[in-house]
């Protein structure tokens, strides 16, 4: 009787082993084959023509040079501005009239009383710029998210409510007539602006910087700025000297741009410094 039971339980154990063995083989084979196809075969088939090793790295989700494999979670946020309901409601309640008084006293010397800059190469035109863009930059100057020896002390004299009023005032002014879409721009610059360069991970400029506005709240309107100002900012983003762009959008994009492309795009968007009210 006991030998019969022993026999049966050893039979059971043999059966269990068989199940474990075949289940492991089946699952292991399936996973290995899927990973081979997903991480190596398909990336090579689809993308080999420009970069086989890069294609495999992308399939894993890493960069070829391993540049992102460093943890920098201690970085401060790019900006402390959030587009919450609270921010929007506060902006809705801003007063251009009281903004006008502050502008005359504080801003007009450089940016002009109506937001048309006295020297667009150094100081951007603010007339008709979006309220959100001006508000965010002023807040960033105040918190130090955007570094400027000139603007930081000036912006810090304003309360948050005054900051909103100033933004509302400039936003209400008539924009500097933009030359825009420079007809002399080369085909690849026009393509960068309108389509971007998907292979390099560059979205089109237009997707955020349209004729009036589009994209994220803080994206400024570029038409009407001087080319040299735009080019300067692009370079600062590329070198990460300027780093108040949310989600590092502009730093990521400009890192991929060549100096010639930055120059071309700046001319394409800019008015050549010839501000015409």
């Amino acid at each position: 009787m006991s030998t019969d039971q022993d026999h049966r339980s050893s039979e059971r154990r043999a059966e269990d082993r068989l199940w474990r063995f075949w289940v492991s083989i089946a699952a292991g084979t399936f996973v290995v084959v899927s990973l081979l196809v997903g991480l190596i075969v398909l990336p090579l088939r689809d993308e080999a023509r420009f970069d086989p090793w890069g294609a495999i790295c992308r399939a894993i989700g890493i960069r070829k040079d391993g540049s992102t494999v460093t943890k920098k979670s201690s970085d401060p946020p790019a900006s402390s501005v959030t587009w919450s309901a609270g921010t929007r409601l506060a902006l809705l309640g801003a007063s251009p009239e009281s903004g006008s008084t502050i502008v005359k006293e504080t801003c007009a010397a450089c940016h002009g009383e109506t937001g048309v800059s006295v020297d667009p190469q150094q100081f951007p035109n603010l007339a008709g710029q979006t309220e959100e863009a001006i508000f965010k930059q002023l807040r960033d100057f105040q918190t130090g998210a955007r570094v400027s020896d000139i603007m930081a002390p000036i912006a810090q004299t304003l309360t948050e409510a005054q900051t909103r009023d100033v933004a509302a005032y400039f936003a209400a002014q008539k924009r500097v007539e933009a030359v825009g879409s420079s007809p002399s721009a080369s085909a690849n610059i026009v393509e960068l602006a309108h389509i971007g360069a998907p292979a390099r991970g560059i979205p089109s400029c237009y997707s955020c910087h349209g004729q009036n506005r589009s994209g994220p709240e803080e994206a400024p309107v570029l038409f009407g700025q001087s080319a040299s100002y735009i080019e300067d900012q692009l370079k600062k983003f590329a070198s990460a000297e300027r780093r108040n762009d949310m989600f590092a959008r502009m730093r990521t994009i400009t890192k991929q741009l060549s100096p010639e492309e930055m120059h071309g795009l700046a001319i394409y968007y800019g008015d050549g410094g010839a501000a015409k009210p």
Partner: peptide, 28 residues
Amino acid sequence: VVAYGYPLGQFFLMDVYPGLVHRVDIGS
């Protein structure tokens, strides 16, 4: 572990850009 090990692990290895918290229960 095979399916989610690396996809979850990468967030602790990589330089990630987290989003700013947007609280819907204040200010509205």
